[in-house]
């Protein structure tokens, strides 16, 4: 694991961020909003890998996409290198785009099927006018292909000729073309074979070591992020419910939802596994259109109390950990 984090250099600061979607069906229907991201705050440091974990549908992609300005935030602020990115336009927006890149989940959908690998990787170079001649670009593409473990003569092939893992490598090569400082990896390995997942993770780690890139690494499964992340945030129904050092969160989850997520992970050590309290997740993820009052997890929480329905628990510090839960609050007071 790369250890060269610079704690006092904040690359990304997200503050009380909300992203709501309008889900009103029809002209005269009652207005409905999907609270996909609902009041989220965190910071990511230079060279850090920040893991973001939560069930499918809890708003992880929406959070990532809001950060790269695919969606406009409903409220709150996003700062990159100390600069608020709300409302930036023109050249400023373009230079912001250069610094922040995004690796999508589905390697079959994220590459234009009607472009050669060369055209795909050259596109960002062309948009930003990084190179003047085709030869320079070709040279750079070959070099990037080698970096991600592909062959330079793959340049003339089409995405459908590659396996999922290879496509994800093409995707990575494309993001590296712009020399970004920060990459959001949106479940980059969850669509891949287990045998290939480790290869892609290794590649991403290797790139991080060499280029000092920060990652926001999204996954729906704690086991995928624990090894590579410095810190982990657990997300539930649009909110972050627990945030802490990766190792600590993994070995000692405090929020009932984190505990449940971990119980779902096969435990390598059978003895230790028995020691842990196993919480199974009951029921479905509630709809973000009509989330439960108070604590979002209360409909599935085995410890839910009266108080949990009345008010929303706020993130509180416990050592280096932040947790939003009344039970944890009471136990630690």
């Amino acid at each position: 694991m790369p250890a060269n984090i610079v704690k006092d250099e904040v690359v990304l600061k997200v503050d009380h961020l909300k992203t709501y979607f309008d889900a009103t069906k029809g002209l005269f229907a009652k207005k409905q909003t999907v609270k996909a991201v609902d009041d989220v705050s965190f910071e990511i440091y230079k060279g850090e890998t920040f893991g973001l974990v939560g069930e499918s549908g809890c708003g992880k992609s929406t959070l990532g996409r809001t950060i790269v300005k695919i969606y406009e935030p409903t409220a709150g602020s996003i700062e990159i290198n100390g600069r608020d990115i709300a409302g930036i336009k023109g050249d400023e927006l373009k230079s912001f785009r250069k610094d922040i890149q995004y690796i999508f989940q589905d390697p079959y959908a994220s590459l234009d099927p009607r472009m050669t690998v060369g055209e795909i990787i050259k596109e960002p170079m062309k948009i930003h006018g990084i190179y003047k001649t085709e030869e320079e670009m070709d040279a750079r593409v070959s070099q990037l292909l080698r970096t991600v473990g592909l062959k330079p003569d793959h340049i003339r092939r089409y995405p459908h000729e590659f396996s999922g893992g290879q496509r994800q490598r093409i995707s990575i090569a494309r993001t590296l073309a712009l020399d970004p400082k920060f990459i959001i990896c949106d479940e980059p390995i969850s669509a891949l074979d287990v045998s290939i997942q480790a290869q892609i993770i290794n590649l991403l780690e290797q790139i991080q070591r060499e280029l000092d890139i920060s990652y926001l690494f999204i996954a729906h499964d704690l086991s995928m992020v624990k090894h590579i992340s410095h810190r982990i945030a657990v997300m539930y129904l649009g909110q972050i419910v627990e945030l802490g050092e990766s190792h600590e969160v993994y070995t000692n989850p405090m929020h009932p939802y984190s505990q449940a997520l971990l119980s779902a992970v096969p435990v390598p050590d059978p003895v230790k596994g028995k020691e842990k309290e196993r919480i199974m997740l009951q029921g479905e993820l509630p709809s973000p259109i009509d989330p439960p009052s108070g604590c979002p997890f209360r409909t599935r929480c085995p410890y839910a109390m009266e108080r949990c329905a009345g008010e929303r628990p706020q993130m509180k510090m416990y050592g280096s950990r932040q947790v939003a839960c009344f039970k944890v609050e009471e136990e630690n007071s």
Binding site: R65, V68, I70, L93, K94, R97, K98, I100, Q101, Y102, F104, Q105, D106, A109, S110, L111, D112, P113, E123, P124, I127, H128, S171, R174, L178
Partner: peptide, 11 residues
């Protein structure tokens, strides 16, 4: 996603 990817690239 390829259209979103183009947007993120700055297209």
């Amino acid at each position: 996603e390829y259209a979103l990817a183009a947007k993120v690239m700055g297209a």
